[in-house]
């Protein structure tokens, strides 16, 4: 099985406009990788959620976007990372409807349902890293 990764492109996530920019970049890549319209929309929406969490709760950070290839099947991998306060109780944060702010509390748990791979690495002294991957069907 061959698998490869392109050099990831890094995007700053420091303002509302950056969230839009990352989302747009992911959309472009998903179109390029010939994702279906549904999968494009799911991935873009997950990106929107996670980038906004990076901005709002992580105090800003960055998103790394890369194109994967697993035996000829393209995938898109995105890392979101910040050096914010971290998530004290990840299970709680992943509970539908739980928010520490004024949100709907669906961003994190919803994003997880929208993608194929979802990993969170978070600690109070290290900030938060979320990795997602979506493969072309």
């Amino acid at each position: 099985m061959t698998s490869s990764t392109t050099e990831p492109t890094t995007y700053a996530v420091a303002a509302d406009a950056d969230v839009v920019r990352v989302r747009q970049a992911v959309r472009d890549l998903a179109v390029q990788a010939k994702f279906s319209l549904v999968d494009q929309t799911k991935l873009v929406t997950a990106t929107s959620e996670l980038a906004r969490n990076t901005l709002v709760y992580g105090g800003g950070g960055e998103a790394l976007v890369a194109l994967l290839d697993k035996a000829g099947r393209p995938g898109i991998e995105i890392w979101f990372r910040d050096e914010g306060p971290g998530i004290p109780d990840l299970d709680l944060a992943l509970t539908d409807g739980w928010t520490s702010g004024g949100g709907m509390g669906l961003g994190l748990s919803g994003a997880k349902r929208l993608v194929d791979e979802f990993e969170v690495d978070t600690a109070p002294d290290r900030g938060t890293r979320v990795r997602i991957v979506k493969w072309r069907r």
Partner: peptide, 12 residues
């Protein structure tokens, strides 16, 4: 349709 599916998956 793609928005409907996404919104449902998000849990909205």
């Amino acid at each position: 349709p793609q928005i409907a599916q996404t919104v449902v998956a998000l849990g909205i």
